[in-house]
Amino acid sequence: IDAAQIVDEALEQGITLFVVNNRLQYETSRDSIPTELLNKWKQHKQELIDFLNQLD
């Protein structure tokens, strides 16, 4: 699994991931984030931050 897949998966569930001051953040209108997704974010945090920083 790679960062792009995780970002896409989040988007499919209505969650936008982004980076502020090198910290992973998210925006969503959902009430809660699925635990499975949160765990993936934690496991791949640095990859996600690097990936999202490249997009900007």
Results as ranks from 00 to 15, higher is better:
I1M: 12
D2G: 09
A3F: 10
A3W: 07
A3N: 02
A4W: 08
A4P: 04
A4V: 05
Q5V: 07
Q5S: 12
Q5G: 13
Q5N: 07
I6D: 02
I6P: 00
I6F: 05
V7N: 03
V7Y: 13
V7S: 01
V7H: 04
D8Y: 15
D8A: 15
D8Q: 15
E9F: 04
E9W: 05
E9M: 05
E9T: 04
E9A: 05
E9H: 05
E9K: 04
A10G: 03
A10W: 02
L11I: 07
L11M: 12
L11T: 07
L11H: 09
E12R: 15
E12G: 11
E12N: 11
E12C: 13
E12S: 13
E12Y: 08
E12M: 12
E12T: 10
E12D: 08
Q13C: 10
G14E: 04
G14I: 03
G14P: 00
G14W: 05
G14N: 05
I15C: 05
I15M: 02
I15H: 04
I15P: 00
T16S: 08
L17C: 05
L17G: 00
L17P: 00
L17Y: 00
L17V: 02
F18R: 14
F18S: 13
F18T: 12
F18K: 13
F18E: 05
F18Q: 10
V19A: 05
V19S: 04
V19Y: 03
V20L: 09
V20N: 07
V20R: 09
V20S: 09
V20F: 10
N21H: 08
N21I: 03
N21S: 06
N21F: 06
N22G: 15
N22M: 07
N22E: 06
N22C: 11
N22I: 10
N22T: 04
R23T: 15
R23A: 14
R23C: 15
L24I: 06
L24Q: 00
L24N: 00
Q25V: 14
Q25M: 15
Q25I: 12
Q25G: 11
E27Y: 14
E27K: 14
E27P: 02
E27D: 08
E27L: 14
T28Q: 03
T28R: 03
T28I: 03
T28C: 05
S29P: 06
S29L: 11
R30A: 08
R30C: 07
R30L: 13
D31T: 12
D31I: 09
D31S: 11
D31Q: 12
D31Y: 04
S32A: 10
S32E: 11
S32M: 08
S32R: 08
S32Q: 10
P34L: 03
T35R: 11
T35N: 11
T35F: 11
T35C: 11
T35S: 10
E36I: 07
E36M: 07
E36F: 08
E36H: 11
L37V: 04
L37W: 05
L37R: 01
L37H: 02
L38I: 10
N39L: 13
N39G: 06
N39R: 11
N39T: 10
N39M: 12
N39Q: 12
N39W: 09
N39Y: 09
N39P: 03
K40S: 04
K40N: 04
K40Q: 08
K40I: 08
K40W: 05
K40T: 07
W41Q: 00
W41N: 00
W41Y: 05
W41D: 00
W41F: 15
W41M: 12
W41V: 12
K42F: 14
K42V: 11
K42G: 08
K42S: 12
Q43M: 12
Q43K: 13
H44M: 06
H44A: 07
H44Y: 15
H44V: 06
H44L: 06
K45L: 15
K45C: 15
K45G: 09
K45E: 15
K45H: 13
Q46A: 09
Q46T: 09
E47H: 07
E47D: 08
E47C: 09
E47I: 14
E47Q: 10
L48M: 03
L48W: 01
L48N: 00
I49Y: 03
I49M: 06
I49N: 01
I49L: 06
D50Y: 09
D50T: 09
D50E: 11
F51W: 09
F51D: 00
F51S: 01
F51R: 02
L52N: 00
L52E: 00
L52K: 00
N53K: 13
N53W: 06
N53A: 09
Q54G: 13
Q54I: 09
Q54H: 11
L55T: 10
L55Q: 12
L55M: 12
L55G: 09
L55H: 10
D56N: 14
D56K: 11
D56E: 13
D56Q: 15
D56L: 11
D56C: 12
